[in-house]
Simulated scan of single mutants.
Amino acid sequence: MATDKKTVLIVDDEQSNIFALSAVLIPRGFTCTAALNGEQCLNILSERTAFDIILMDIMMPFMDGIETIQMIRELPQYKNTKIIVITADDNPALRLRSMAVGANGFLNKPIDVDKLVALF
């Protein structure tokens, strides 16, 4: 049923990563929207009332994922939206910092799709 579709915002400066994530999520019934950086992400969020989950890269130009997560958590309509960090950096300190600013999960690239979908 269309109303059961989960909406996903993929925030990543690499279009190939957006394509790859969309390619595995869409066949599983997810609706995907993309942003190439934190500024684009915030613009999209200001125009929509809700996403079910946000997949956030950390290393991006203009505004990194940490700063973007902090700003998202200031938006009342997105205070409880799941934000999953997806990054190639497996530094434990980055994981802790991501969670401290409001991320709900942390996955390393390349993504294990089953682990990702389980976070939904």
Rank of each mutant, 00 (worst) to 15 (best):
S46V: 04
R48H: 13
R48Y: 15
A50V: 12
A50Y: 11
A50C: 14
A50D: 14
F51G: 01
F51K: 01
D52I: 13
D52R: 11
D52F: 10
D52P: 05
I53L: 12
I54K: 03
I54H: 06
I54T: 07
L55W: 15
L55P: 07
M56V: 01
M56H: 05
M56Y: 04
D57S: 08
D57H: 08
D57G: 08
D57E: 13
M59L: 15
M59Y: 11
M59V: 09
M60F: 04
P61W: 07
P61G: 07
P61E: 06
M63Q: 10
D64C: 02
D64F: 01
G65W: 04
G65K: 02
G65A: 02
I66M: 01
I66H: 00
E67L: 02
E67A: 11
Q70I: 00
Q70L: 00
M71I: 09
M71A: 08
I72D: 00
R73G: 05
R73K: 04
E74K: 15
E74M: 13
E74P: 06
E74F: 06
L75D: 09
L75V: 14
L75E: 03
Q77N: 13
Q77G: 10
K79H: 03
T81P: 08
T81Q: 08
K82D: 10
K82M: 05
I83Q: 01
I83G: 01
I84M: 06
V85M: 04
I86H: 01
I86M: 03
I86P: 04
I86W: 00
I86K: 03
A88Q: 05
A88H: 01
D89V: 06
D89M: 06
N91T: 01
N91C: 03
P92D: 03
P92H: 06
A93W: 00
A93K: 11
L94N: 06
L94F: 01
R95P: 00
L96S: 09
R97H: 12
S98R: 02
M99S: 11
M99P: 07
A100T: 07
A100N: 14
V101G: 04
V101W: 09
G102H: 13
G102V: 04
A103Y: 12
N104I: 10
N104P: 11
N104Y: 09
G105I: 05
G105R: 04
F106Y: 14
F106P: 07
L107K: 10
K109N: 03
P110A: 13
P110N: 12
